[in-house]
Amino acid sequence: MGTFTGVMPLRAVAFQIMFLLLAIAIEGVILQAQLRIPRKLSMQYAATTNLLATAVGWMVFFIVEPLLAADWRKELIGYVFFGIKTIPVPVVLVGFGMFLGTFLLKLQGAEWLDMILEKAPIEKKTAFDPGKFRGRQRVHADFQLGPSRPLAILWANAASFSAISLLLALRLFVH
């Protein structure tokens, strides 16, 4: 420690800002369509959960990095400083892990956001009136049509991950 060089993570910052904006835009649109909520609300969900996921992701990186074995660190340093020339298996696995991790985090983040904003959950069950006979068909239909937030978040996450992966792959081929 103690040396301070002109090696700056400026590209990381630029890419991160770009990907965050992209992910928020895509996820906002998908959440709006799936959950039938106002655009502003869906953008708020997307922005908050994505920022949360990014910050937590960095924390995980800072915790894991010092624990890496020498060989793995060598690989990691190679990726960070010199980019990748092919798509190695560990990178795919880490990407998949990130997808699952961010999905769970966004799911939980949406819950926390509801709590902080003191919002009732969107899937509010309307009081079921047992006195009225609705028939089996109707109950069944209700159950299926109600917008499921976990599913919407999964779709949104998949879409934004696909878009970012596509851009990264394009960069790999163009470069």
């Binding site: 060089t5 002109g6 090696v7 993570p9 400026l10 590209r11 400083f81 010199f82 990264l168 960069r171």
Partner: peptide, 22 residues
């Protein structure tokens, strides 16, 4: 870079993370 200082002699053109100003 302080553990592996010789990295700085190389070019970081292909990096998606860093630029080397020196």
């Amino acid at each position: 870079l302080s553990d592996y200082p010789s990295l700085r002699a190389d070019r970081f053109d292909r990096s998606a993370f860093v630029v080397n100003l020196g």
